[in-house]
Nucleic acid binder design. Sequence first.
DNA 1: GTGCAACTTCAAGTCGACTTGAGGTCAAGA
DNA 2: TCTTGACCTCAAGTCGACTTGAAGTTGCAC
Lengths: 146, 146
Amino acid sequence: MATQHLDIAQVAQQSGVPASTLRFYEEKGLIASTGRRGLRRLFDAGVLERLALIAVGRAAGFSLDEIARMFAPEGGPRIDRQMLAAKAEELDRTIRKLSAMRDGLRHAVACPAPSHMECPTFRRIVRAAASGAIGAREKKAPKLPN
Amino acid sequence: MATQHLDIAQVAQQSGVPASTLRFYEEKGLIASTGRRGLRRLFDAGVLERLALIAVGRAAGFSLDEIARMFAPEGGPRIDRQMLAAKAEELDRTIRKLSAMRDGLRHAVACPAPSHMECPTFRRIVRAAASGAIGAREKKAPKLPN
DNA sequence: GTGCAACTTCAAGTCGACTTGAGGTCAAGA
DNA sequence: TCTTGACCTCAAGTCGACTTGAAGTTGCAC
């Protein structure tokens, strides 16, 4: 045998991704099964890495369709580098905002002000984090596990 | 007049948040109107800051309910500092993952490998970003505008 | 006083990402 | 051979966060 084959239950167990989600991802073209044993899907071990990639992409706020577009064409139509660069920029802005939010939360933990909105430091942090976040609706943000 | 009053259309225009969303947020208790002119809601100018806060919270991946819990009780039951600290930690982990993802994307832009999965650098970055992201499903991550 | 654009309420619809349920199939162990 | 349990398919349901639509009301310009 070439690479190791795992059935769907093993992939689910090793990745933590439910079998129902694996089927759903396959249907969406995000992962591919390499065959069947009876009815059961078999996956190449590489699927685990791919799932990790999908998880990270989701964590970064990309939709499944975007992830598919970014990584699906293995040797396909050629990946859009400009799009990737734009995504990296987007991510960078997100990171800056989240950093401000984190600082704001840490401050709130320590701050004695009765309501955080009355604390000038907190308000300054919010303003920093919010610059541009408002008034330019596009999509929204995701929630990370772990 | 004490503070400046804005009607819902002005708030919508200045914040970029649709009036329907403002009504929805009010219903959820995230913002409060200070009165009415006829049927029309009037808001205190401070609502703009509050909306910014909500936007940043969303960008950080918090649900509306979580945001409400974090900031709603203006002088209320007392804010849960431990929860805020935990959120800050969570955010910090998210930020590290997103940073890895961003680096991965930037590398992908420059990398000549035919498929990114075949590039050792990219795979290393994915592994770094994924550590813990997989196998510990809980929720998912946000998508930031702007 | 009359129009009407812009607001109001309330219920229902939408969207992405899955999950759940009903009914079916199969490989492997007793 | 027969059971059984884990998988299969396909349709429908769920959840959060809004958006849309129908039907009603009203401040303000004329």
